[in-house]
Design a binder for these strands. Structure first.
Length: 603
RNA sequence: GGACCCGUGGUGUAGCCUGGCCUAACACGCGUCCCUGUCAAGGACGAGAUCGCCGGUCCGAAUCCGGUCGGGUCCGCCA
């Protein structure tokens, strides 16, 4: 039988079907068992006699064959889409088991804190509410595309690596690019403008990177930028109107396609007036002054409280939760922004503010080559560094402008999320790239810390050991000399990659590893020595000073059987100038290594 | 970079201010048993935390103080 989706069971009443999906919850009534089965299309209740139900719990992947039945009148559940029917199971097969979930997934709300939400991203994404966030995001991005395609815009793929920082201010990530420095793109701005000279109207959906050393609820280091740019405009209001068309299109699409998702969050789309109001920055500041007495009339930029206040004003006076602010001081915006003819102190750039924060930024750009060149110089930018960009202008550029939305921000503010990280499937910020960086092994002055870690570990285990201070040593022989031990007593710790996983191999100081034997003995296909850099990264310790405690660095530990010939062993304690001597038996007891035979005489 | 707040079983929280009835509470989850109509199932019983870590004050610390590590919020920054 062919698998069908939960949503397609609705018109299969009385028919035999095969469903596959995850067990969401299981309600056991003794002889009868209810299982809520979910797949990508929805949730359905399965009823089964307990005799045919295998061991099952939330998270299990199952295939269930049975008959779709109408539920008795009094057992209809209006809360779920398939509430009028259920699947009477005939056969339940477990496709994959699941560990017990670390938190409750069966509840309408996922009650976890942000770090837990992100640490278990693979799991939390299964929750309907979390799911809904990314459904909305998909519609945001898709409708952005459609809105522009309808206006004759061409999509292009913006590069992620850029040669130079074209503008000061924003912090960018530097990357090692072969023998040169390059940067991760913080905006496709220059590329999209350049493309106007060949395609007239372009847009892109791409990742942008910002190395701002800040942790806020509305910034992430990697974001999805929705960019558009087009030529042959008469003035900047045409750019604004296009942006207005796009955002209205996007909001309308979300309203139509995400009814359920919005409902889950109790979210409503922002009110938008027939025409989104537009005010100049100075006007906005005047309004704020009159409403609150806060005098920011000379500020170059609205602060977060100003943005919230102007949204309140717009909401109350103009019946619009979205508002454009235009005409920022020319000097505070990038070199390519078009100064206003009437008052060149201010420019034809604008932001779209919604629900108290910036949703979009855009403006008209300078298209005249000579003007652009002189602006670049005034802004302290070397024209050489933006020669590719200038090229488009040198050979004929129509008047142009454009704008950019942040997909995560829009998602966040439509749904009323409090932290933008919730609106990014895999958010990157200063402290996190999938996992908290602080929990990862890292470089730095780890010499002492690996040393201290080791001592802590030994002290906690409450075993006897001797600590030696000595001049720095770098070879097993030297070490044996300064410690007054025999070379074979030295426990030499080598870091290797076995089938790409770091492992630690320990053997007597006078012997070397026989890689062939090691492979054969431990059943690895591929073994190679870690480079000194890799060792430092993995252990925080220089080669030669690595203590034979693989467990401290979360590596599997393999010990050469010949080491057991020593009553006591000695090794460097994470520093070249510190050694530890301890009983072999204690070492084995503490580290519980795998023991094997893989040494060879030093030639 | 600045200010403030938080760290208690697997998860989410109470307790802290006003130290001792804390042998640490509650909800969910988990385990065993009961249950043929539940749908956030229900019932009975049970396991699970030396209260982030280190130090100090005190007869006595989850509770007060200092340090440290981790987390969060607001502000700055965000061309």
């Amino acid at each position: 039988m062919k698998r069908i989706l939960v949503q397609d069971t609705l018109d299969k009443i009385g028919k035999e079907v095969l469903l596959k999906g995850w067990v969401n919850t299981r309600r056991d009534h003794g002889k009868i068992v209810f299982i809520d089965l979910v797949d990508r299309s929805g949730l359905i209740q399965v009823v089964a006699q307990s005799t045919i139900v295998p061991e099952l719990a939330a998270g299990f992947v199952v295939a269930i064959e049975g008959t779709v039945r109408n539920r008795p009148e009094n057992m209809i559940n209006p809360k779920i889409e398939t509430g009028k029917i259920e699947l009477e199971a005939r056969k339940i097969e477990v496709i994959a088991k699941s560990e017990v979930y670390p938190f409750d997934m069966g509840k309408p709300d996922l009650e976890v804190e942000l770090p837990t939400l992100l640490d278990y991203r693979g799991l939390t994404l299964r929750h309907p509410k979390v799911h809904a966030i990314f459904k909305v995001q998909e519609v945001v991005i898709d409708s952005f595309r459609r809105s522009l395609q309808e206006k004759g815009f061409v999509e292009f793929q913006a590069p992620g690596i850029i040669p130079a920082i074209p503008e000061g201010g924003t912090e960018v990530f530097e990357v090692q690019y072969f023998d040169h420095k390059a940067y991760l793109s913080q905006s496709p701005q220059l590329y999209k403008s350049l493309l106007v000279s060949s395609f007239e109207r372009v847009f892109s959906v791409n990742q942008i990177y910002r190395a701002e050393p800040s942790v806020t609820t509305r910034h992430i280091a990697e974001a999805t930028s929705l960019d558009a740019e087009f030529g042959f405009i008469e003035d900047w209001t045409e750019v604004r109107d296009m942006a207005e068309y796009v955002i209205k299109y996007v909001l309308r699409s979300v309203g139509e396609k995400c009814v359920k998702e919005l409902e889950l969050f109790g979210a409503t789309l922002p009110k938008v007036a027939e025409r989104i109001p537009t005010i100049k920055l100075r006007e906005a500041q005047q309004i704020i002054y009159e409403r609150t007495g806060r005098d920011h009339r000379q500020e170059k930029d609205p602060d977060p409280e100003d943005e919230r206040e102007i949204c309140r004003w717009s909401s109350e006076e103009k019946d619009s939760e979205l508002v454009f602010i235009s005409h920022y001081p020319t000097k505070t915006r990038p070199f390519y922004t078009y100064p206003d003819e009437a008052d060149p102190e201010y420019n034809q750039g604008f932001d779209l503010i919604g629900r108290g924060v910036e949703w979009m930024t855009g403006g008209r750009r300078i298209h005249d080559y000579e003007t652009l060149l002189s602006h670049a110089k005034q802004w302290g930018i070397d024209p050489e560094k933006i020669s590719l960009y200038l090229q488009g202008f040198k050979y004929g550029m129509p008047p142009l402008g454009g704008f950019a939305f942040g997909a995560e921000r829009i998602t966040m503010h439509i749904l009323g999320l409090t932290n933008i990280r919730e609106a990014s499937v895999f958010p990157r910020d200063m402290e996190r790239v999938d996992l908290r960086l602080s929990t990862q092994a890292n470089g730095g002055d780890e010499d002492s810390s690996a040393f201290e870690q080791l001592l802590d570990f030994l002290n906690q285990a409450a075993i006897d050991y001797q600590l030696f201070e000595h001049k720095p040593v770098f070879t097993s022989e030297e070490a044996a000399k300064v410690r007054g031990t025999k070379p074979e007593q030295g426990a030499k710790a080598l870091v290797m990659y076995a089938d790409r996983n770091p492992i630690m191999v320990v053997l007597p100081g006078n012997l070397k590893v026989d890689v062939k034997q090691l492979k054969a003995d431990l059943g690895f296909k591929d073994i190679k020595m870690a480079t000194p850099e890799e060792v430092r990264k993995l252990t925080g310790v220089e080669i030669g000073a690595v203590p034979p405690f693989g467990n401290l660095f979360k590596m599997s530990l393999y010990v050469e059987s010949k080491l057991s010939a020593n009553y006591e062993i000695a090794f460097n304690a994470g520093r070249h100038d510190r050694s530890i001597k301890m009983k072999y038996a204690d070492f084995i007891k503490l580290t519980k290594p795998q023991i094997g035979s893989f040494s060879a005489q030093v030639a």
